[in-house]
């Protein structure tokens, strides 16, 4: 029983980080219809941006987070402005290729400045343990879950009730009709990339704290795909459920036999897609007869 609780907490913590990483992917896909293969690298860059502010520049934690968030937002807007805007209207495959290239560039830039050896980063999440239902679980995992829940809830509220959130969904639905309402589609695109980079920074920060700060953070982007495909490419709540499912399944599988955790998410993914081709919460195309 205690092992089960432990696995559940670990699974949820991984799921929370996955959901945050997937959130950026979904935001970009939803608003701009771009499939961003550089999402994992945004995580990597985000984590190193925070490292630079916190460790190298010795800023206080709160200030370092703000500086990191601001830098990530600028990076996101810059990527949209310089790399993706000229590609509006081009073949989706061409755009995908460009994001793959972007991933390589981002990774190379990080290597250029920080090398390939993992960096020491002081733990920012609490180090102690707590007892949950008779099992001992590390506090940092619980805090990671809490942070992810707060961020995801904030985005959900933003999309449902704020004017800009509704505008973003309107752009996702019909760009030309959104233009006619006076919505600046360019600004919405920039906003989506800024949000994606910021959520990636938070995910990268949590991940660096739980695991370690190294090049390997980038490969985390690959695990995002089962999450977003499971939850639905364009659904924010879907990323939460998708992240939790993938996180839990791989932890439980790990508990049964080491190595199974690598395969289990994809097995679940295939099973769910057989039943729901648009993912659990993906928007089916509305067709009225």
């Amino acid at each position: 029983m205690s092992q089960f609780v432990q696995l559940t907490v670990y699974g949820l913590a991984n799921g929370a980080v996955l959901a945050l990483a997937a959130l950026g992917f979904v935001l970009i896909y939803k608003a701009t219809s771009v499939i961003n293969f550089a999402q994992g690298e945004l995580l990597l860059v985000g984590a190193y941006l925070f490292y630079t502010a916190f460790v190298l520049l010795r800023l206080p934690f709160a200030v370092a987070v703000l500086v990191g968030v601001a830098a990530a937002a600028v990076l996101g807007v810059g990527i949209e402005r310089v790399i993706l805007r000229p590609l509006i209207g081009e073949d989706p495959i061409a755009v995908i290729m460009v994001t793959i290239g972007l991933a390589a560039v981002l990774k190379a830039v990080v290597t250029m400045f920080f090398g390939t050896t993992p960096r020491e980063m002081p733990k920012v999440l609490p180090a102690g343990t707590a007892t949950v239902a008779g099992a001992t679980v590390p506090l940092d995992r619980l805090v990671a879950v809490a942070v992810a829940v707060v961020v995801l809830a904030a985005f959900t509220v933003f999309f449902r009730w704020s004017r800009h959130g509704v505008a973003m969904r309107a752009v996702a639905d019909d760009q030309q009709a959104a233009l006619v309402q006076g919505i600046s589609v360019r600004r919405i695109f920039a906003l989506a990339w800024a949000f994606a980079a910021v959520s990636a920074l938070i995910a990268g920060l949590l991940l660096a704290d739980i695991a370690e700060l190294s090049q390997n953070l980038g490969t985390f982007g690959l695990v995002v795909f089962p999450v977003v495909i499971l939850g639905g490419l364009d659904s924010v709540p879907g990323t939460i459920i998708g992240g939790a499912v993938i996180g839990l399944v791989s932890q439980y599988a790990e508990g049964m036999s080491a190595g199974a955790s690598q395969v289990a998410p994809y097995v679940v993914l295939v099973l769910i897609l057989l039943l729901r081709p648009y993912g659990l919460f993906g928007q089916p195309r509305i067709e009225r007869v």
Partner: peptide, 21 residues
């Protein structure tokens, strides 16, 4: 617009919110 072009996945009220941007 021709062909109505409402925001299909938004509610009626959200469509109006978008119109009032």
């Amino acid at each position: 617009m021709e062909g109505r072009r409402v925001f299909e996945h938004l509610t009626v009220h959200e469509n109006l919110v978008a119109g009032a941007y």
